[in-house]
Design a protein around this nucleic acid. Structure first.
Length: 498
RNA sequence: CGGGCUGUAGCUCAGUUUGGCUAGAGCGCUGCGUUCGGGACGCAGAGGUCGAAGGUUCAAAUCCUUUCAGCCCGACCA
């Protein structure tokens, strides 16, 4: 059996494999603070690429960036009843503003520095941004307001997993205000489309766009939409959400404007977000038993060149060859940008170095030794395609690099889509549903007719399955609820999920 | 918040039951050397108030008490 770079393998122990991929790729590590991680340079570079592309998409759809406070007065959260219920249980609370010696060599919050009103660390910013918007909006001429913020948020989760659910995480949250329900709904759907386009185009991660059922809705929202992806263990991952908030928050926070007729009315708001969880999705969509596999569009380095030499004489021949190769590659463009190239000239053993880059998921690895310099070639390996590599003429390699990256990007998407389709079924009766989600079954995505209700909830809880969404395409169709037998016109995707 | 478990080198852990030499191993790290289109090897070396406090004892990583921290299962989870 071939040696794998990651142990255990996916089939041996999937959750542990996931942890080891992160470790092997040097993406992140656990910190001294429970539930919070340190995102290391390679992991953060991926996040920066995600940010850069999404930010451009937000700007292209008319949004502007702004920044709101980390702290939110506790009373703000109380204003929207469902919102309170959804978030109160996982909030970090700031109660003091000064420390003093505790008399035993340590520190304690100074009793006389207690805050009049506690501040919570934002779990999401609807309330404080809404309060701000209330001051910004007076007339229909002030609308729409289209704002995004890149920020960190804190949700005091009991159970955390790197990137997928951490106590503190990085995200963007868009918040918009509109003069009509139709416009706000259109905004909600537009941003869902942006997320789907990003997930499929940049991450090579196929997603299903759909609406959340009542039980899965964002607290305080009228409608929540999400993109749902399927991971290699056949569990679903909610990768992004977009909420139509109706007038719920506008009423709670007095966001009012005068319309054309001169009447005072409440505005319509939306919010939408994606987080560092996307990186978890990226890992579990493409990576293999040799570690991370990155789609070229998000890879911090698309090509890594490994010079091979044994002495100064060889070094003086090989290094300039590598440097000029790097320049030539950088003059090539892929995805509207120069190809991203690194030379790894660290003083490490060659094999060790190569495997580090394999585990980090770099799409194309190039080894250049004296023989290549002599022959005018390079030795090229493509991640997850031909790991061992093959010798190719340098000029051909350079001329085709953009095409190679494009093919790899598409190949990852196709592979993930095929895996998802192979794990997707249509189920019309409960017995088959139970069998599909039995503990010893592989599981997957099941499309079923349903009606929201106690019959469904009880069965789903027992099977640890949730309705992921009612797909925008194929969600409307008449049939019988597999849980209650009632006639229904709605169909959802069911799965176990992260 | 219930049930179980663990704290010993940077990391993973052995040693604790039955107290007793200078507290160990593997990996990693540093140096030298051999290898090398490759995840290799040899030699030498650095690195520990054994989670913390108190107690029992001639003697404590080991026994007792207290305490702190973390992990797993459950509950919970926009």
């Amino acid at each position: 059996m071939a040696k794998t770079a990651i142990s255990p393998t996916r089939s041996e122990n999937y959750p542990e494999w996931y942890q080891q991929v992160i470790k092997g790729a040097d993406l992140a590590e656990n910190s001294d603070v429970r539930g919070c991680m340190v995102i290391k340079p390679w992991g953060y570079a991926i996040w920066e690429n995600i940010q850069r592309r999404l930010d451009a998409m937000f700007k292209a759809t008319g949004h502007e960036n702004a920044y709101f406070p980390l702290f939110i007065p506790m009373s703000f959260l109380e204003k929207e009843a469902q919102h309170v219920e959804g978030f109160a249980k996982e909030c970090a609370v700031v109660t003091h503003h000064r420390l003093e010696p505790d008399g035993q060599g340590g520190l304690r919050p100074a009793p006389d520095s207690k805050l009049e009103e506690p501040l919570i660390v934002r779990p999401t910013s609807e309330t404080i941004i809404g309060a701000t918007f209330a001051r910004w909006v007076q007339s229909y001429r002030d609308l729409p307001i289209l704002i995004n913020q890149w920020a960190n948020v804190v949700r005091w989760e009991l159970r955390t997993r790197m990137f997928l659910r951490t106590t503190e995480f990085l995200w963007q949250e868009g918040h918009t205000v509109h003069a009509s329900a139709e416009e706000a709904q259109a905004e909600t759907r537009q941003m869902l489309d942006v997320y789907a386009a990003f997930a499929e185009g940049a991450m090579a991660m196929p997603v299903i766009k759909g609406e959340k059922t009542a039980g899965e809705r964002f607290p305080g929202a009228v409608a929540t939409y999400s993109i749902e992806a399927m991971m290699q263990d056949r569990k679903a991952l909610q990768a992004g959400t977009s909420h139509f908030l109706g007038q719920n928050f506008a009423k709670a926070q007095e966001i009012k404007f005068q319309n054309v007729a001169g009447e005072l009315q409440h505005a319509w708001t939306t919010s939408w977000g994606v987080s560092t969880r996307l990186i978890g999705g990226l890992i579990m969509s493409h990576s293999d038993d040799d570690g991370l596999v990155l789609p070229p569009k998000l890879a911090p380095a698309q090509v890594v060149i490994l010079p091979i030499y044994r002495n100064n004489e060889e070094k003086s021949a090989v290094l300039p060859y590598c440097q000029s190769l790097k320049s030539e590659l950088e003059s090539q463009r892929y995805d509207d940008e120069p190809v991203r190239v690194r030379i790894d000239d660290r003083d490490l053993r060659g094999g060790d170095k190569k495997w580090q880059w394999v585990k980090r998921g770099v799409p194309v690895l190039v080894e250049v030794g004296p023989r290549d310099v002599q022959s005018g070639g390079v030795f090229r390996a493509r991640r997850a395609i031909d790991a061992k590599g093959v010798g190719v003429p340098r000029s051909e390699f350079v001329a085709t690099i953009a095409n190679t990256l494009a093919e790899m990007q598409q190949g990852l998407f196709d592979r993930a889509a095929a895996a998802r389709d192979a794990a997707t079924v249509e189920i019309a009766d409960l017995a088959k549903f139970e069998k599909f989600f039995a503990d010893d079954a592989p599981g997957g995505l099941a499309y079923c007719h349903f009606t929201d209700g106690p019959a469904m909830e009880a069965k789903l809880k027992e099977l640890k399955v949730t309705p992921r969404c009612v797909p925008l395409v194929g969600g409307e169709s008449s049939g019988k609820c597999i849980f209650s037998g009632e006639a229904t016109s709605r169909r959802a995707v069911f799965a176990r999920s992260y």
